[in-house]
Simulated assay, not measured.
Amino acid sequence: MLPTAASRSARRARLHLLRGRVGLGLVAALSVLAGMTDAIGLLALGDFVSFMSGNTTRLAVAISEADLALILRLALAIFSFVAGNALGVMLARRLRRRAAPLLLIIAALLACAAWPLPWTFPALVLATLAMGMLNAVVEQVNGLPIGLTYVTGALSRFGRGLGRWLLGERRGGWRVQLVPWAGMLVGAAIGAWLQQRLGLLALAGSCGLACLLALVMGFVPRAWQVGFMVR
C-alpha cells in the first residue's frame, strides 16, 4: 500500500524533530569543547581564545594604558579568531560540508597548541584559530541561529524570547538558546579542572574531544550535516 499524504507528513515531522534533537546534541557537545578550550586558554595563557568580546574590552584598556605588548597580543588573538572563521567557511565548502574532516583539522591545531614552548604566542594563535574554525561546524539547527564559541548572543536571544513569552506570545525556539550556554559552562568547568592539573597540556583534552566528535559526525546523516554547517 502506498503511503498516504498524512503518513508522509507525519514521517517528515518525526524526521524534523529528530534532526533538531541531534543538532542540539551536537551544539551542546561543541559548546563543551569551546568552553573547555577557552578556560584552559585563559588560565594557561592569560587570554581568552574564544571570547572575543572580552579580548576586545581588554584591548581597549591596553590601548588606553599604552601597553604595546598587550595591544599586539590581543590584536593578534582577535585577528586569529576572525581568520579562523574565514578559514572554517572556506574549508567547509572545500570539504563539501563534511564536519568530520574539519573537526580533525581543529583537533590538529589544538594538539599543536598544547605543545610546550618557552613563549605562548604560538599556542594563542593556534587555539584562537581553532575556535574560529569551530563555528563553521554548526551554524543553525532547523533554521535557528546558533553560536558555539560565544554565548552573549544566545543569552540575548533567550532573554528576548522570555520577554515575548511573558507578554503572551508563544513563539518557539528561544529556549534552545540555553543549550550552548549550558554546554560552554560545563566545558569551562572541565577545562579549568584539567588546566589546574596539566597546565597548557590540558589542550590535549580539547584535542581528544574534537577527535571524538569527528567520529560521532560519521554517524550523522550527510543531508543533516549540510543543513547544520555554515553555508
Rank of each mutant, 00 (worst) to 15 (best):
R164D: 13
P122W: 01
L209G: 12
V216G: 02
T120S: 14
S53H: 04
I105Y: 13
R175M: 15
A111W: 13
P221H: 11
Q177W: 10
R11Q: 12
F228K: 04
L17K: 15
G41H: 12
V186Q: 10
G199A: 03
L76F: 06
A136P: 08
L74T: 06
G173E: 04
L110S: 02
R14W: 06
A113F: 09
R170I: 10
G147M: 14
V49R: 03
R19W: 07
M1K: 09
E65A: 08
F51D: 11
L148C: 00
A10H: 05
C211H: 02
P145V: 03
L167M: 12
L148Y: 02
A29Y: 12
A189E: 08
R73W: 05
V61I: 11
L26H: 05
L91F: 03
L213K: 01
R12A: 15
M36D: 10
E139W: 13
A189Q: 09
L70V: 08
W115M: 08
W115T: 11
T128V: 05
L185I: 11
W181S: 06
L91C: 01
L2C: 07
L26S: 11
L15M: 15
S206W: 11
V61R: 12
L166T: 14
A202C: 01
N142I: 13
A62G: 01
P116R: 05
A223W: 13
A39T: 09
R157V: 02
A204T: 15
L194K: 05
L42M: 11
T56F: 03
L30S: 10
F158T: 06
A204C: 15
D47I: 15
S53V: 04
V226H: 11
M36C: 13
G132R: 04
S206K: 09
A13S: 05
G41A: 12
L68Y: 10
V138G: 04
Q196N: 14
Y150L: 09
G172H: 09
L200P: 12
P101H: 03
Q177N: 14
G199F: 06
L203W: 04
Q196G: 14
S50K: 05
D67I: 05
P116N: 07
T152M: 06
N135G: 01
L201R: 08
A60L: 15
Y150D: 02
P116S: 11
T57D: 08
V137I: 14
P118Q: 02
E65C: 06
V27L: 10
G191R: 09
A28D: 02
A75I: 10
L148V: 04
L18V: 13
P116I: 09
L59N: 01
